[in-house]
């Protein structure tokens, strides 16, 4: 039982680290790192959910009766792909922002926009 809760705690701790980084860091790349950590914590939540105690990997073979639930794994495969797409799109945007502003620090970008107005 305690082992099960350990996963949940890890998930929550990672989630909060990610969320905090997104909110508190002014660097756009660091924000994206935070966002990724935040998303990964959810992967952990799903995968822990699929674990059946005593069960093995869901591959059909003789002599094995108990399997883990493969559905959350499949769902998370989709979510991982989405996560990669989001991260790469975000990084591409940061590259373009870097070219346009010569900086990727949020406060400096805001400053430069104010000067322009």
């Amino acid at each position: 039982m305690t082992v099960g809760l350990l996963n949940d705690w890890a998930c929550m701790v990672l989630m909060m680290i990610g969320l905090y980084t997104v909110i508190a860091r002014p660097n756009l790349v660091k924000k994206l790192i935070g966002l990724s950590i935040f998303q990964v914590s959810v992967f952990l939540l799903y995968i822990s959910m699929g674990k059946v105690s005593g069960g093995t990997a869901p591959i059909l073979s003789e002599g094995i009766e108990v399997y883990s639930n493969p559905l959350p794994h499949v769902l998370i495969l989709t979510a991982i792909v989405v996560g990669i797409a989001t991260l790469s799109l975000g990084l591409a945007l940061v590259v373009r922002i870097g070219e346009a502003y010569d900086t990727i620090e949020e406060d400096e970008i805001i400053e430069r926009d104010l000067v322009n107005d």
Partner: peptide, 17 residues
């Protein structure tokens, strides 16, 4: 406008959250 990039970035963060 170059601010379209930052607007999109901001939306990406909020949307993904």
């Amino acid at each position: 406008d170059r601010r379209a990039l930052t607007a999109s970035y901001q939306y990406l963060l909020m949307g993904t959250l």
